[in-house]
Design a binder for these strands. Structure first.
Length: 479
RNA sequence: CGAGGUGUAGCGCAGUCUGGUAGCGCGUUUGGUUCGGGACCAAAAGGCCCCGGGUUCGAAUCCCGGCACCUCGACCA
């Protein structure tokens, strides 16, 4: 028995022995994705894609509640459009894939496969915005984009990835800033409440901000190897794009004015964040709100009196209560086999119903987050399951938060910083100079992540150069 | 992109040095017994040996070029 189990566990590399290998093992064995013949591009399989659909649904609801509408834009962008904003083209040019031929005809102007859609949105906004009555214009699209990345890793960085990109146009700078922060807050709430991932929310440095943005904000998560992962970003463009693209409106006072714009996005990278935040030795651990199956029902000794029927009844009752449930009635694998498989796939709650349970009028359960076991009365199954799922989501957040807290430290010297970023976040005072960021990157491998909104100083000298500093900045090695 | 490693049945691997009929374990299929933490017996199926060239009578094996994954760097809205 013990031997057989060990053989199984060997399929997944131990997490603390080789985190990268563990990640790859989990991603493939939990059946989330597969590699394709296209360099760096993955295929999302049904189980992984379902997670993305659930994230999409949660976000789309929030976007609509805050007055955004979905649109669809072309995937090809003429080169001349990409060239209009200097910083933007400089930032993206190295990783653009180009279409140079249509059918047998060589194109006069090559077309970029979108790496992001600011330029095409801006071009259309210039046509669509005329008057202050047209504003604000708050659009979003769900699509895939392509960036010719040098190194790729499933979900975290792939040459093609799926995301949403919001693009909004506003009359005033204040409104654009408000939008930028509102969307950041939606991302924070999504990460923490829906995905159970604690994040640091704050502003990026000039060095790390988006190509073409006036200000960039991010939510930064921490993976279980102590590295940071940027989970989402929002950008305030000010008039950086509206000037070259000539997006102007006639104000109520009759003046022609440039618009203020924002953009914001999260991607399938969030799935990578879920895996690396919550996963353990047995595999994936999914937050209940985005788990394709929130509970799995396993019949025990299914051939015995009433088991099959009670399991089917239980599944129906849970479905009726809106719970995503899977009845695993396969008769070709043993219960023990199923236990391991559903743990690998991260299902938050396992329910077992066997002759003994039926006798006692209960279902036995095991939580995926803590491995804690117990029973729920069969006649109150939906209520019991719902309560457990909610608690599992909270508990997973608490666990992740505890990890982050033990791997985050205030540092007051360069030596301390150097040591802390080997395995976590360092919170430090920073003078604001690019030279210090560059030196830290060069010497420690860590980058500035973001400046939290709570800027209560923890000192008054820069952790790097020792000169006067008035900003609090998180530094960490990042994916 | 640089250095190193790996690629053989669905999965894990041996075989490669020293060229000569493609192997093992698990899984799969069928039948039977089982069923509360990866069950057992019996029979069977399953291979462009990562891809493309080359050397050779003959290539999983030798040579050249690609691709993918892993490790460490570099780069990176």
């Amino acid at each position: 028995m013990a031997k057989a189990k060990q053989e199984f566990v060997q399929h997944i590399t131990p997490r603390d022995e080789n985190f990268s290998q563990w990640y790859t093992d989990v991603v493939t064995q939990a059946d989330l994705m597969d590699y394709t013949p296209v360099r760096g591009a993955m295929a999302m399989k049904p189980y992984g894609n379902r997670i993305w659909e659930l994230i999409q649904a949660a976000l789309d609801k929030r976007f609509k509640e805050t007055g955004h509408e979905n649109v669809a834009m072309p995937m090809l962008i003429p080169e001349s459009l990409l060239l209009k904003e200097a910083d933007h083209v400089e930032g993206f040019a190295p990783e653009v894939a180009w279409v140079t031929q249509g059918g047998s005809e060589v194109l006069q102007e090559r077309l970029a496969v979108r790496p992001t859609s600011e330029t095409i949105f801006c071009t259309m906004f210039a046509k669509w915005v005329h008057s202050w009555r047209d504003l604000p214009m708050k659009y979003n699209q769900w699509c895939s984009v392509m960036r010719w990345e040098k190194t790729t890793r499933p979900f975290l960085r792939t040459s093609e990835f799926w995301w949403q990109e919001g693009h909004t146009v506003h009359a005033t700078a204040e409104e654009a800033q408000e939008e930028t922060l509102q969307m950041l807050e939606i991302y924070r709430e999504l990460c923490e409440q829906v995905l159970s991932i604690p994040v640091f929310s704050g502003q990026k440095s000039d060095k790390e901000k988006f190509a073409g943005a006036r200000a960039t904000y991010s939510v930064e998560a921490m993976m279980q190897d102590g590295k940071a992962l940027q989970a989402g970003t929002t950008h305030n463009f000010g008039t950086n794009f509206s000037v070259p693209f000539e997006i102007k409106y006639l104000s109520a006072e009759g003046d022609l004015k440039y618009c203020h714009e924002t953009s914001w996005g999260v991607s399938t990278r969030l799935i990578g964040a879920i895996i690396m935040t919550h996963g353990d030795e047995r595999g994936l651990k999914l937050p209940p709100r985005i788990a394709p199956y929130q509970a799995v029902i396993l019949p025990i000794a299914a051939h015995k009196g009433g088991v099959t029927e009670r399991c089917a009844q239980a599944a129906e009752a849970l479905k009726a209560a809106g719970i995503r449930v899977k009845l695993d009635d396969r008769d070709n694998v043993s219960p023990g086999w199923k236990f391991n498989e559903w743990e690998l796939k991260g299902v938050p709650l396992r329910l077992e119903i066997g002759p003994r349970d039926i006798e006692n009028g209960v279902a036995s359960y095991m939580r995926r987050d803590t491995y804690e076991k117990g029973t729920i009365p069969l006649d109150a199954l939906p209520e019991g399951v719902n309560a457990l799922l909610e608690d599992i989501g909270r508990q997973m957040y608490a666990q992740a938060l505890a990890f982050r807290e033990t791997h985050t430290k205030d540092v007051h010297s360069y030596e301390e910083l150097k040591e802390q970023v080997q395995g976590g976040y360092a919170r430090a005072m920073w003078c604001g100079k690019r030279a210090c960021e560059d030196r830290i990157k060069e010497e420690t491998g860590a980058t500035s992540r973001n400046m939290p909104f709570d800027q209560t100083p923890i000192g008054d000298t820069c952790v790097c150069c020792g000169e006067h500093a008035d900003r609090v900045m998180y530094f960490a090695k990042a994916y």
